[in-house]
Amino acid sequence: MLEEVTQLAEAGAATLVGVILTDTWEAARAGFVRLFRRGDEGQQAAIETQLVVGAELVRQAEDAEAARQSLAPMWRFQLAELLRQHPEAIAELSSWVEESRAAQPRTHWTAIQNVDTRDNSRANAVIHGNIIVHEAKPGLNAS
């Protein structure tokens, strides 16, 4: 259970800092603040303030990605504490992570291609491009 909480807190922090100042920031921020509704109003206000300050730090940073990454440990700690005090929040945080990640546009695609040939066969393959094969007529020397 402890490892699950740690991994979820890590995923939540990474997701949060990844969406700062993106098109989905406002919706993600509102959902994130709702996670802390279990505390008093002062805690929610403090979380909201930390989010605003963090976003401003990213906005003003020369290296926005480095600024985002510097915020992640604080949010990882905050989320781990939330889950330790309120284990019932695990499902809600997990759902928030999935929804927030799904709302982000995909900027990186991974393509995997496996090609197997056997016996007297030939394979021609390409990813993200064209392939043109000019067959030589049987009996003609290609030279």
Score class of each variant (00 low, 15 high):
residue 129 G to W: 06
residue 3 E to K: 12
residue 32 F to Q: 01
residue 67 A to G: 05
residue 8 L to N: 06
residue 90 I to S: 11
residue 120 N to S: 12
residue 6 T to D: 09
residue 23 D to C: 04
residue 138 P to F: 08
residue 68 R to G: 05
residue 52 V to A: 10
residue 37 R to F: 08
residue 119 D to K: 10
residue 133 V to A: 08
residue 13 A to T: 05
residue 51 L to C: 07
residue 33 V to M: 04
residue 98 E to K: 04
residue 91 A to W: 05
residue 53 V to Q: 14
residue 11 A to N: 09
residue 142 A to D: 06
residue 30 A to M: 02
residue 78 Q to L: 07
residue 81 E to T: 12
residue 126 V to E: 09
residue 66 A to L: 13
residue 130 N to A: 13
residue 132 I to F: 07
residue 106 R to S: 15
residue 16 L to Y: 09
residue 37 R to K: 08
residue 50 Q to N: 10
residue 48 E to C: 02
residue 105 P to D: 01
residue 28 A to D: 08
residue 27 A to K: 10
residue 64 A to E: 15
residue 62 E to H: 13
residue 36 F to C: 01
residue 83 L to A: 09
residue 8 L to A: 01
residue 98 E to L: 08
residue 16 L to C: 02
residue 113 Q to C: 09
residue 135 E to M: 03
residue 118 R to T: 09
residue 98 E to D: 15
residue 76 R to L: 00
residue 88 E to N: 07
residue 132 I to H: 15
residue 29 R to A: 13
residue 31 G to Y: 01
residue 21 L to S: 12
residue 125 A to T: 15
residue 10 E to A: 10
residue 131 I to M: 11
residue 38 R to I: 04
residue 139 G to N: 07
residue 127 I to F: 07
residue 136 A to C: 02
residue 24 T to H: 13
residue 94 S to M: 02
residue 79 L to T: 06
residue 82 L to R: 09
residue 135 E to H: 06
residue 133 V to C: 05
residue 139 G to H: 05
residue 1 M to H: 12
residue 54 G to P: 11
residue 100 S to P: 10
residue 114 N to R: 15
residue 33 V to Q: 07
residue 67 A to Q: 09
residue 41 E to D: 13
residue 111 A to E: 15
residue 49 T to R: 13
residue 43 Q to T: 12
residue 50 Q to F: 00
residue 124 N to E: 10
residue 19 V to R: 00
residue 51 L to T: 00
residue 8 L to F: 02
residue 55 A to S: 13
residue 137 K to F: 03
residue 100 S to C: 04
residue 105 P to I: 04
residue 90 I to W: 06
residue 8 L to G: 07
residue 104 Q to I: 03
residue 118 R to V: 05
residue 36 F to Q: 06
residue 76 R to N: 05
residue 138 P to M: 07
residue 131 I to A: 15
residue 120 N to Q: 13
residue 133 V to K: 14
residue 54 G to R: 08
residue 80 A to L: 02
residue 98 E to P: 07
residue 96 W to V: 02
residue 9 A to E: 00
residue 27 A to T: 11
residue 19 V to N: 01
residue 60 Q to T: 10
residue 91 A to Y: 04
residue 51 L to S: 01
residue 50 Q to M: 01
residue 139 G to L: 10
residue 40 D to Y: 02
residue 132 I to S: 15
residue 126 V to R: 15
residue 24 T to E: 11
residue 134 H to Y: 00
residue 75 W to V: 00
residue 121 S to T: 14
residue 44 Q to A: 07
residue 56 E to D: 14
residue 79 L to N: 02
residue 78 Q to I: 02
residue 88 E to Q: 08
residue 76 R to S: 04
residue 121 S to H: 07
residue 13 A to I: 06
residue 143 S to Y: 11
residue 41 E to R: 11
residue 14 A to R: 14
residue 126 V to L: 03
residue 33 V to A: 06
residue 38 R to D: 03
residue 117 T to D: 05
residue 101 R to N: 15
residue 13 A to V: 00
residue 40 D to S: 04
residue 102 A to N: 13
residue 139 G to F: 03
residue 135 E to D: 11
residue 134 H to C: 01
residue 111 A to G: 14
residue 140 L to G: 03
residue 85 Q to V: 03
residue 19 V to E: 01
residue 50 Q to K: 09
residue 112 I to H: 15
residue 44 Q to T: 06
residue 131 I to K: 14
residue 35 L to V: 02
residue 96 W to Y: 04
residue 102 A to P: 10
residue 94 S to E: 09
residue 23 D to R: 14
residue 37 R to Q: 09
residue 126 V to W: 07
residue 5 V to A: 11
residue 71 L to V: 01
residue 125 A to N: 14
